[in-house]
Amino acid sequence: MDFINSIVLLCNFLIIPALTYGSQLALGAIGVTLIYGVLRFANFAYGDLMAFATMSVILVTWYLQSIGVNLGVLPTALIALPFGIIATIAISLFFDKTVFKYYREKKSDPVILIVVSLGVMFILNALVRIIIGPGDVVFMDGARFIIKAREFKDLTGFDEGLALKSTQLITFLTTIATASLLFYFLNKTKTGKSMRAYSDNEDLALLSGIDPNKIITLTWVLVSILATVAGTLYGLDKSFKPLAYWNNLLPIFAATIVGGIGNPLGAFYGGFVIAFTEIALTYAYKKFFVYILPEHLEPNSLVQYISTDYKFAISFAILVIVLIYRPNGIFKGKVI
């Protein structure tokens, strides 16, 4: 019984949150890695692109709510998603045409593109805060919980409760669906394969008749879809706060590098690696040990490796270890 309780405890505080957080990071990391693979630079504006995308979704959600449209138990934001995607594609292509294209055609050093992406980051950041304000926005509606801790206890008779928020399930399922669709596209369709080919060997792709402009436009479209989905899921789960997306960019970068920069499948796994390590190392296992250990062995400290204040340090440590020992990422696989 104690054993089952300890498992439920871990599910509630470690596994479910890590799966949710991992999903959010995974989608973000795939986006960063796609940009890196095809356009060949680390895009520091990506966090703010997610913020912009989420803001667009929120604005449409508010409009839909004002005219009384909703999805019942599901959040209204899901209907608003396609509109947010369109807005994000538009702004991505706008910045590509006005900013990034020039440096791409000049074949500038990737470092210059990083610096330029800072400019885009500032602009997006300002736009979001000017349009929607700097504060917290909660735009989640519909059913909050699939199962509440108390209901679970009553249902099963365990001492430990298990709560599952609907956003957590939506996040996980949407991530799996989005990622599967993307991997199907990249590995099975002619256009997807040509995108990988372009990323692998640009010159040979040109010699094979692949049109680089189409590939680049397509990349921004995919990246915008991913940014909108990832940003919205994060906003639904936590709340929307412009600067939070910027802070998420760091673990996303870490996930991207862990998975091997330019490798979408690696980025997907990398997101979960970062999330699980972060949550597993900052979780206080005291109660868990109280369940499984005999009474005289019970710990009196929190049994927590490092406090949550230092979660950046975990991303960083993983990053450094990977960069030193496996600079191409820990997952072998196709690099886009």
Binding site: K190, K193, S194, R196, A197, S199, D200, N201, D203, L204, A205, L207, S208, G209, I210, K334, V335, I336
Partner: peptide
């Protein structure tokens, strides 16, 4: 059709995918 001296295949793609890319047009 042209075969460059170096970097003349898509190393990350499978052999079959290399051929499919060759047939892009």
């Amino acid at each position: 059709s042209f075969v460059p001296q170096t970097n003349n295949i898509f190393t990350e793609l499978t052999v079959q995918e290399n051929l499919e890319m060759g047939a892009f047009l």
